[in-house]
Design a protein around this nucleic acid. Structure first.
Length: 435
RNA sequence: GGGGAGAUUCCCGAGUGGCCAAAGGGGACAGACUGUAAAUCUGUUGGCGAAGUCCUUCGGAGGUUCGAAUCCUCCUCUCCCCA
């Protein structure tokens, strides 16, 4: 996907820049300062240095933590210098912001592996050729203990405990490890090291961003402006979208996957997703959310818009069609993964259905497979020409394909005409025999 | 350093000798219904080719007992109070 280069249509005067940048923010600490910085930048033709830190704590960037990245992109479009910090050191600590327990410390290897995939993904949003990319191990690795002490002396325990997440944990008697107190200082020190003029982050980052301001002052630098963006709820609808909760939509997930996950959010969440996770303008969003539009359709537009943002128009269109096909018309999806059955598993050309479910990865044990069957969630039918699978469509006679007996032995057809195994509404596999 | 409380299944959390593969909630999965992987309702949620006076699981290692998540000893980790 190519990134839009809109810089020539973009307002260059500081006031309009500020206007553009303010859209979709929660706090700007130092808004006056920001305007001043923008003015100076115009006057002296010096781009602002805009910092965003990404901690590679998991392999995926999701549409929630992509929000500040898009904001960084905005700055980039306005001609400012994006500074992307890959927090390979901070990732080892784990940001305590908004978390109610100590995060497991990651190993160097895990972090580095994630860092690689992060850049791959950030490419989808940022123009990396115009982005300064820095790893914070660069300075933390060689930092001596005396320097760490000096840094730590700049923060008080009382101030730390003012933080909501820490004070809650403290009140609830949930352990707080000392190294977690170091995190904001590390992030703040990053700002000093890259001489950041503006730092971006989700609202839960406000404290960390403010520490950056303080530290910069201590180190004789002009303090950065802190600009925060909203947090997005995960697809479960109540908790913040996060990797560890597994309630996220990753930006490099398959379009079909993104589409489906977006369709699974509750209706009330649509507005927020429209605003924060798509490129649609306010007018269009209002239109889609009006009572004239069926929520189902609005949500499909939402899902499409999210896919479009990361995979382009064509992928979005395809994902939408695919979804309708499977969930509205109850037909087979376009792409069905194979489950390979080793010939040795067969007895007289037959395979125990329970075994097949396990081989396909649809059940982790025979017992679970039996349960699925007992619940009526398992179907097996020939590949050719079966329109699924609904009692409401009598011509399909769907239920003749439902597996009802966990002791069934399924004859496995030759490779040319494989069978389709379906579990639940959306898990499919094509059964293939190989030696 | 002294005293007290605690660690339970994917998560939270009940359980203080057998009725415990372990309440309840969350999550997840399945079914019904539908507008969809929304909402709602129902069910399932350790393993074993389903079966048993079976095996594994209540922080770890031992012990008491016919029998231990539950009692004892030591260990690891956490929280609280005092210093």
């Amino acid at each position: 996907m190519s990134l839009k280069t809109t810089s020539d249509t973009i307002p260059q005067d500081p006031e309009s820049q500020l206007e553009v940048l303010k859209r979709g923010t929660i706090d700007i600490v130092g808004e006056e300062e920001l305007l001043e910085k923008l003015r100076r930048s115009c006057r002296e033709n010096m781009p602002l240095r805009v910092k965003l830190g990404l901690d590679p704590t998991a392999p995926d960037i999701h549409i929630g933590n992509a929000i500040p990245i898009h904001k960084l992109r905005k700055f980039q479009e306005l001609g400012h210098q994006a500074v992307l910090i890959i927090g390979d050191y901070t990732a080892m600590v784990g940001d305590p912001a908004g978390v109610n327990k100590t995060r497991p410390m990651l190993s160097r290897e895990e972090v580095m592996a994630n860092a690689g995939t992060y850049l791959q993904q950030a490419r989808k949003i940022l123009d990396l050729s115009r982005t300064e990319i820095v790893y914070n191990s660069q300075w933390f690795e060689k930092m001596g203990f005396s320097e760490i002490l000096r840094l730590a002396s700049k923060m008080t325990v009382a101030r730390m405990l003012e933080r909501d997440d820490f004070s809650k944990r403290y009140a609830a008697r949930i352990p707080i490890s000392l190294h977690e107190f170091l995190y904001p200082l590390m992030q703040g020190y990053d700002s000093v090291m890259v001489r950041s003029g503006v730092e971006l982050g989700g609202t839960d980052q406000l404290f960390n961003l403010l520490v950056g301001r303080d530290l910069q002052r201590d180190f004789g630098q002009e303090p950065q402006v802190a600009l925060t963006t909203p947090l997005l709820e995960g697809i479960d609808g109540n908790k913040k979208m996060s990797k560890s909760l597994g309630n996220y939509i990753g930006i490099i997930e398959e379009p079909a996957q993104i589409f489906g996950k977006a369709m699974s959010i509750r209706d009330e969440l649509m507005k927020k997703y429209f605003v924060l996770a798509t490129d649609l303008d306010d007018e269009r969003i209002a239109e889609l959310l009006s009572p004239d539009i069926h929520p189902r359709q609005a949500k499909a537009e939402l899902a499409k818009a999210i896919v479009r943002r990361y995979w382009g128009e064509e992928a979005a269109e395809q994902a939408a069609q695919e979804f309708d096909k499977v969930f509205k018309a109850h037909e087979l999806p376009e792409e069905i993964p194979e489950v390979v059955v080793p010939r040795g598993e067969l007895k007289d050309g037959k395979l125990w259905i329970v075994r097949l479910l396990v081989l396909a990865g649809f059940a982790s044990s025979n017992s679970e497979a039996r349960r699925l069957i007992a619940q009526g969630g398992v179907y097996i039918f020939p590949y050719s020409g079966v329109k699924l699978l609904r009692p409401r469509f009598p011509e399909a006679e769907a239920h003749q394909y439902r597996v009802t007996d966990p002791n069934d032995e399924i004859p496995i057809a030759p490779v040319v005409a494989p069978q389709i195994l379906k579990v639940g509404p959306r898990r499919f596999a094509r059964v293939v025999v190989k030696d």
